[in-house]
Design a protein around this nucleic acid. Structure first.
Lengths: 149, 149
DNA sequence: GCTTGACCTTACCCCAGTGGGAAGCTTTAT
DNA sequence: ATAAAGCTTCCCACTGGGGTAAGGTCAAGC
């Protein structure tokens, strides 16, 4: 199987297959004499695993760990479960962060009459010294505010 | 005000201030004779605007549009509102996508006994020919998938 | 046999946004 | 005067790809 067929069979683009190989996520494919990569069903299965893992939001690095767990016949399912639950928590945190943005935006939008007049509480709020700015502006010379961003 | 002070006052790192200037998000700062960037309160206000916009999940490009709206004294608040609502929909779509991942992960994890035994429905599912693979391949050559990694 | 076109190869550049750091100049403080 | 802190530009890295170009290979048709 050439890379194009493997890509189609796995749903991973040929480009990404090469990329995954280059960064070491998947093992280098065997080559024909002329240098073409050759794949078998097992390779396609691995690629599908990667695709599914990525689709569940696991990073490439996490996917590599999952792959390692998958290939480790003796792994404890508890390890996999805790790994999945950790990722779940990450996802939930991300969702909460996005929802917080949504709440703010919804609130702002609901206060904006949205007509032809120029005054807009949305812009006013974004421009305001809101949360996160603290009082940095009031004390003119905050020379020793060690808050690295 | 030098870049460091402006960074501290705005909450945007000096690094990012330079970056924002380089990509044209903010206007080039005036310079001292020796080349140091100089900022005033208005610049800091703009930086804060950018920071707040980014914090609400607007991309740099969207932030540039918001900045333009902000500076346009004659804009219609309806324009701002529709812009915000469009972004809100983007955020909600992203949340839904993440929540879908979460649901799947929760379901998988709940089916995993999570003990010392190696059999794990989480890995089984990720490795399975799940959604997105369709069944086109299933008839073809799925019989000898012996992954003896 | 030869051409054509599809496919493969490597090797770049690009994007968003940031972090890090080097090398060198300026300003400030001691 | 000297050292430290701060500034400058420039380059590299990262994730997760997209694109594109120059060239090699393969299988088909004529």
């Amino acid at each position: 199987m050439n890379i194009g067929e493997a890509a189609q069979a796995s749903g991973v683009s040929a480009k990404m297959v090469r990329y995954y190989e280059r960064i070491g996520l998947i093992r280098p494919a065997t080559r024909t004499e002329s240098g073409y990569r050759v794949y078998n069903d097992e390779d396609v299965h691995t690629l599908r695993f990667v695709r599914r893992s990525r689709g569940l939001g696991f990073s490439i690095e996490e996917t590599a760990e999952l792959l390692a767990l998958w290939r480790d016949r003796g792994r404890a399912s508890a390890d996999v479960k805790s790994f999945a639950l950790k990722h779940l928590k990450d996802l939930e945190a991300k969702i909460e962060s996005l929802q917080s943005m949504c709440r703010t935006l919804r609130h702002l939008a609901s206060n904006c009459h949205g007509d032809g007049r120029p005054d807009c509480p949305i812009l006013d709020d974004i421009a305001a010294f809101g949360p996160g700015d603290k009082e940095a502006k009031r004390t003119k010379s905050m020379t020793n505010c060690n808050h690295s961003h």
